[in-house]
Design a protein around this nucleic acid. Structure first.
Lengths: 98, 98
DNA sequence: CGGTATCCACGACGATACTG
DNA sequence: CAGTATCGTCGTGGATACCG
C-alpha cells in the first residue's frame, strides 16, 4: 500500500496522472490544464513519475523542441486506483449517514 | 480525489485504518501492532481521523482508563480504497511488463 | 517552448521526556 | 494504560527569476 500511495501522493500528482490518462501531453499543455501549478512543481512531479517508471519523456527533434509525456503500462495501471479515489472521495463528500 | 487522498495520506494512516477494519482497538493495541510507530504520531493520526469523522474515541470508566477507537460508517467506507491501494501496490511491485 | 536555480514556508514525522 | 509537550529534521510545494 505504501508503494501505491507513494505513486499517487502529492497535491498535483493525481491530477497530472489523470490528464495523461487521456493521452500524451506536452509540458505546456499540462501547465495550461492546471494554471495554479507552478513550472517547478510540475517539473519535479514529472521527474519523479519518470523515475518511478510511470511515464516516459519523449523529445521530438526540431525547433522549438517538442516534448511529450506519455504514461507507461505501469502508469496506466493506476487508473483503477484513481477511479476508486474519486469514488471514495465522492462518498466522503456526501452527507454522513449518522 | 483530494478528499479521499487526504483521508488515507500519511505513512501510518492506511495501516491504522486497516487494523481498525478488523474491529475496535485500544491505543496500546495499536502501538503493539506497529512497534515503529511513536506515541505522538499515533496520537496525531487518531485525532486527525476523528476530526474527519472516520473514527470515534470511546472511553470506558474505571481505572485504569480504557479507551477504544472504532471506525465509523465513513471510516469503513474506505475499505475498497485500501483494497485497491494494496492491489495496485502489488501490481507496481511485480516485474514491469516492459 | 520547455524547462532549471534559488529561496522560503509549512506540515509530517521522529526522538525524548513527562503526566494523570 | 493512554496519552501530551517539546524540539529538530526533512520533503513538498510555492514564488520569483532566469536559460537554451
Amino acid at each position: 500500500m505504501e508503494i501505491a500511495l507513494a505513486a499517487v501522493s502529492g497535491r498535483w500528482t493525481t491530477l497530472v496522472l489523470r490528464e495523461l490518462m487521456h493521452g500524451p501531453r506536452s509540458f505546456t499543455a499540462l501547465r495550461g490544464a492546471f494554471p495554479a501549478l507552478g513550472a517547478k512543481v510540475l517539473s519535479d512531479r514529472l521527474r519523479e513519475l519518470a523515475e518511478r517508471g510511470l511515464l516516459v519523456r519523449e523529445e521530438q527533434r526540431g525547433f522549438p523542441v517538442r516534448t511529450r509525456y506519455r504514461l507507461t503500462a505501469r502508469g496506466t495501471a493506476l487508473r483503477p486506483l484513481l477511479v476508486e479515489l474519486y469514488r471514495t472521495g465522492s462518498a466522503l463528500t456526501a452527507p454522513p449517514r449518522a
